[in-house]
Each structure stands twice: as structure tokens, then as C-alpha cells.
Nucleic acid binder design. Structure first.
Length: 271
DNA sequence: AGGATTTGACCGAT
DNA sequence: ATCGGTCAAATCCT
């Protein structure tokens, strides 16, 4: 279980690399937006940049949290997989319950971080597996897992809920890191420019999205600005994270993030 | 037909 | 007992 000493350093380098890439993409995007004449010709380029930026966030978070996530990955790798008593149901009523005691575990110590954004899109492929009404919340919470959970044992999940005070915004809590590889099938769910939309889980049909250019610009500026802020801790307890509180917000057109990690991993202070 | 979503039940934590 | 997270059958969608 002991992790090597140099691993945090390697992760730090990787994280910085990811952030630099994201920053470069943001700069390109900004340039694109400052040159409207090129903008129409390169709409897909802009989308691509946005995707890259989002992925940069995701990858960075994965890298930063990977060094103390082995146990989590192991836990998620051996899925419950109860033996399927495959009987075609004879009625619409729920079949007699199987004994599901101990059939799943909660990821109490998984890394979590929260992102608030007008879109739930993040470049990963997710599969919805549940929705719950939450006490004192007007909006239900939706539960997603990585589509490669069984494919590659990826244990990443996320929870999406509309913001109470701003229903246009979605608060997405990511739990666990992606251990899957994105290569090959099931590409990210970002559509081409003709069908780009910023819509949520249950999108109202044909709602006109905001001008993507404005949002890209905001995103680019938010990413590029040095006061981008990340807050880390653990969602499960009130233990404030000892490692780091980069308590600035990526605040641009409502984009901001609130990242939660637990204190078990050393976080580079110099980022 | 096969994959994705919906939704009520089950289960662990508090 | 209650709440929130997950499971899995039923249903929907492509």
C-alpha cells in the first residue's frame, strides 16, 4: 500500500503539464474570439478548444488525486457482479428481491470535486443510473457512472443537480477518478458544431443555447486567469483539507469550480 | 435488437 | 426512522 516517495512529484509535473496545455488552449480560444473574422470559419476549432480545456481540468484532477487513489481503484475494479438469476419476469411487478446485502460499497474516501457550470458536458461518456429527490431541494439529483465501469473497471461517478438559486446552472460533483482509457470507441459526447448544445440531463427540447462564442470567451478568460481557484477537501466530512486550499474561483460567466480532495495526498503548493 | 434511461426497491450511514 | 446512493427490471429510444 505504500506509495513511492517520488510519485507525488511525478504527478505534480503531469498536473502542471495538463494545466499548461489547458492554458494554451484557452489562449488560442481567446485569440480566436478576438478575431471574429476567423471565428465563423473555425467554429469547430473553438469547440475543440473548449473540449480540450475541459479535459485538461479533468485530467489534472485525475493526476493530482491518483497517488492516493489506488485503494479506491482496487475497490472499484472488483465490481459486485452478483450472479444473474436470469429469469424473464412474468409481470410488471418487481421480481422478488435478491439478497443484495453487501452488494455495493459507498465510496467514502474517493476524491471528490464540484464544478458549477451551465453545461454538464465534460468530455467523458457517462451513463445515468439513478435519480433521487433530495430533501429541501427543489431539483432532483441525477447519478451517473462512467460508461466503462464494467468495460475497464473505471469507478468514476458524478452527481448532477440544478443549482437552487440559479436553475440555469448545474452543480456537478465528481466522485473518483477515471481509470479508463478514452481511446477507441465511445468518443466524448461533444457533438459537432451543428448540434452543439449546452443542455442538461433532461433537456427541454429545442431550447436556444446562449451564444457559444460568449461562453467560450468566458471560459477562456476564466481558465487563463491566474486567480483560478480550486478548493479541496473531502465531501464526506468537515475536515478542512490540510494540504491546500487554492481558494480562488474560476469565475467567468458563472463558471466556477469547487474542488474537493481529502488531505491524504500531498498537493503541490506552487501551482 | 441492443443500448440508454427511468423508477421503485434495497441498503448503508447517521 | 430517515436520507441519500445504488441496483436492476421495465421501459424508451435509435
Amino acid at each position: 500500500m505504500a506509495t513511492t516517495d517520488h510519485k507525488p512529484r511525478i504527478n505534480k509535473i503531469k498536473a502542471i503539464k495538463e494545466l499548461v496545455e489547458g492554458q494554451e488552449c484557452a489562449s488560442k480560444l481567446q485569440f480566436l474570439l478576438h478575431n471574429p473574422s476567423q471565428q465563423h470559419a473555425s467554429a469547430s476549432v473553438g469547440e475543440d478548444l473548449v473540449l480540450k480545456i475541459l479535459k485538461s481540468f479533468s485530467q489534472t484532477l485525475s493526476v493530482l488525486s491518483s497517488s492516493d487513489s489506488e485503494s479506491f481503484m482496487e475497490a472499484s475494479a472488483n465490481s459486485p457482479d452478483d450472479s444473474p438469476s436470469d429469469e424473464s419476469s412474468e409481470s410488471r411487478k418487481r421480481a422478488p428481491p435478491k439478497d443484495r446485502r453487501g452488494c455495493y460499497k459507498r465510496k467514502r474516501n474517493a476524491q471528490t470535486w464540484t464544478v458549477v457550470s451551465p453545461t454538464t458536458e465534460d468530455g467523458h461518456a457517462w451513463r445515468k443510473y439513478g435519480q433521487k429527490a433530495i430533501l429541501n431541494s427543489k431539483h432532483p439529483r441525477s447519478y451517473f457512472r462512467c460508461t466503462r465501469k464494467y468495460d475497464q473497471g473505471c469507478g468514476a461517478t458524478k452527481q448532477v443537480q440544478r443549482k437552487e438559486d440559479d436553475p440555469q446552472m448545474y452543480q456537478t460533483t465528481y466522485i473518483g477518478v477515471h481509470t479508463c482509457k478514452e481511446t477507441g470507441k465511445a468518443p466524448p459526447i461533444v457533438p459537432d458544431s451543428s448540434s452543439w448544445d449546452w443542455e442538461p440531463i433532461n433537456p427541454p427540447k429545442q431550447q436556444e443555447p446562449e451564444d457559444p462564442a460568449v461562453m467560450w470567451k468566458d471560459l477562456a478568460m476564466g481558465f487563463g486567469s491566474s486567480d483560478a481557484a480550486i478548493k479541496m477537501g473531502d465531501i464526506d466530512d468537515e475536515v478542512s483539507c490540510k494540504s491546500l486550499e487554492m481558494d480562488s474561483m474560476v469565475r467567468s460567466a458563472g463558471f466556477y469550480s469547487n474542488f474537493h480532495f481529502d488531505e491524504s495526498d500531498e498537493f503541490p503548493q506552487g501551482l
